[in-house]
Nucleic acid binder design. Structure first.
Lengths: 350, 350
DNA sequence: CCAAAGGATGAAACCCGTTTCATTACTTTA
DNA sequence: TAAAGTAATGAAACGGGTTTCATCCTTTGG
């Protein structure tokens, strides 16, 4: 019913489907050697037009698809790049993954997505697996600094995305000016008239979260404002829980800096549920600039990261690492403020 | 700096990192044959305790990681299952992917996610690639019926998820009772007092969208209500555009059935922007029951699909297809109504 | 007209983990 | 004590595409 039908010695199928046959079968059919078939397929050497035609016909007839595994084994390259992310449920990472996937496709690479969920062991296993699979490189966006020591001696190039890892163990780091982002968020809330701002910090072992917090903290210090923080993970469940806590601890709050957009959305949910109006009673700002931040109602004011540029840069480093002579080891991209509906000031920037 | 250091003939690295070395090197170091090393690693045959210890020590010393590609080539199995989805940006599919990934991991399989974006050629290429990679099976959730004819003779098992494909070409189909979902949505809006309901249909070439529409349509017919429909894709951009159109064509509308949750969210955004209150002036219901439907404010009333069960069922069929004797070819799962805040009636169900 | 150069092609090695099959050594049974 | 059986292990083949190297044939230059 769905197995390949056998026809003589050659597996054939006539209904436009997929067939398994080997290069040797094709060769036999075309009355050439496997080497010649390989040359025709890859254009790696001149083949007489007459021969080429016969080979092409044989490929057509058998529906031959070259076995990628055999190719990978010899070439020591699977034309695959691993993308390690902490959560496939976080729209920020799926947006990133979507862009990287598309760009990689154009360069002839596949993306192997590894969802490690903040688990260090899973992350190590993912890297080992990618190495064992002859992947050509890794884009590491797990956010977990602890992986660093494990990376030394990794035989395939690794580029850290959204995290700061020593240039000793990775090809390069690509991240944003999170610190500036933290400052921007705080300064914006102040400009909007907030008197009582609380910063919901992401996990401090994550570089972006730490830097954002430090931006916020430094503005506080410069202006003599006491810090008010709550700790929170980068996911919505944590966001919901921490918002409850925040309202308990800081009932006077009139401005909230969320650890990222998805947390901002969950904060908004709680505020909405409690009939606390945004931005009238409390103003709210997020980080990341995911699609959803603009899709939610009201639209979320947020500090945008150039997701597309980050994806492009990271991929570029991995793909072109061999040919890079004077390579950068650090790409720091600028962030920008998107003033929308959860803060009061109508700004110049969109 | 990051290359593996060479030590004698054996590649070594002392800092806990990753190393490339072959089974033959390990064998040489342990003074055994590669076969014995393989037997120690896989437990495929008895090895003398003394020998085993030497081999283990050699593996430890070299940091040897068996090459998955070589293993896949021989075994004709990559311990990998392909998951083909139309969009990695749609939370429904990432939620699905997350669950499948987790379950597959427990069974010793990797998931290779293929984002084909509704492009038939990309989808064909993805399937060919999976075959060429010695994948063990495919979970096909692209929604695109047209792929059907391409599937015949596919040498690896395919299970269709969220779509209806002939049992001739797939191992099984797993989907929900979308028709019932369509009815449920319509009946609920009627119960909530809507007089002027518009159905925003998903692409009619997609099975779920067609079935949902037919559920809606049949309720209309049974009650003598004239149909009012607008066509829309399954993404938020389309949702935004179509809502504008809807409001133009049907200014009297007081109930909207969205093609899915993400479209419902974008509908809400437009309504909110136009100061049309939900559910007072217009009531709104979605399909899918993604996390986000509950996270948005107000919480979205929606027809939930048992995403977890679907994932589990699909994976089970693929993994266990060889041992299935009397196999089902169709798994139809029930949907359920989650009455939340975008419709008026406070229902029994949560 | 012969040598050198170039083009087309095939045989065989290669990538590396797995498995079969044969061999050796030793134990058990008759 | 011989025959039969068993455990441990290695040599070699295998999987399938790629590449090197040698070979053969044709063309070009002297």
């Amino acid at each position: 019913m769905k197995r390949v039908s056998s026809f003589g010695n050659v597996d054939l199928l006539f209904e436009g489907g997929i067939v398994l046959s080997s290069i040797r079968e094709v060769a036999r059919l075309a009355k050439v050697s496997p080497a010649t078939v390989s040359r025709v397929m890859n254009g790696t050497a001149a083949v007489a037009p007459e021969t080429r035609k016969r080979v092409l016909a044989a490929i057509e007839e058998t529906g031959f698809i070259p076995n990628e595994v055999a190719r990978s084994l010899f070439k020591k390259s699977a034309k695959t790049i691993g993308l390690i992310i902490p959560s496939i449920r976080n729209p920020y990472f799926t947006q990133l993954a979507g862009i990287i996937d598309e760009l990689a496709g154009k360069e002839g690479y596949r993306i192997f997505l590894c969802n490690v969920g903040g688990d260090l062991e899973k992350e190590k296993a993912a890297i080992q697996m990618l190495v064992a699979m002859n992947a050509d490189g890794v884009i590491l966006a797990s956010g977990n600094q602890e992986i660093q020591s494990f990376l030394s001696g990794c035989p395939i190039p690794v580029v850290a995305l959204d995290m700061m890892v020593s240039a000793e163990v990775v090809e390069a780091c690509v991240y944003c000016d999170y610190y500036q982002g933290g400052r921007l968020a705080m300064e914006h809330l102040l400009e909007c008239g907030c008197q009582n701002i609380v910063c919901i910090r992401g996990p401090q072992k994550i570089f972006s979260a730490r830097q954002r917090y430090e931006g916020y903290r430094d503005v506080c210090r410069e202006r003599g404002i006491p810090e008010q923080t709550v700790d929170c993970d980068y996911d919505f469940l944590s966001g919901l829980a921490m918002t409850e806590k925040l309202l308990e601890c800081y009932p006077q709050v009139d401005g909230i800096i969320a650890s990222n957009d998805i947390v901002a959305i969950s904060i908004y949910k709680i505020l909405h549920k409690k009939n606390i109006t945004v931005p009238d009673r409390i103003q709210l700002i997020g980080f990341d600039g995911i699609d959803l931040s603009e899709l939610m109602s009201p639209e979320l004011t947020t500090v945008c990261q150039p997701i597309e540029d980050m994806a492009k840069t990271a991929l570029d480093v991995v793909v072109r690492q061999k040919e890079n002579f004077e390579k950068e080891t650090e790409y720091i991209l600028p962030v920008s403020l998107a003033i929308r509906e959860t803060t009061k000031r109508r700004g110049r920037e969109q």
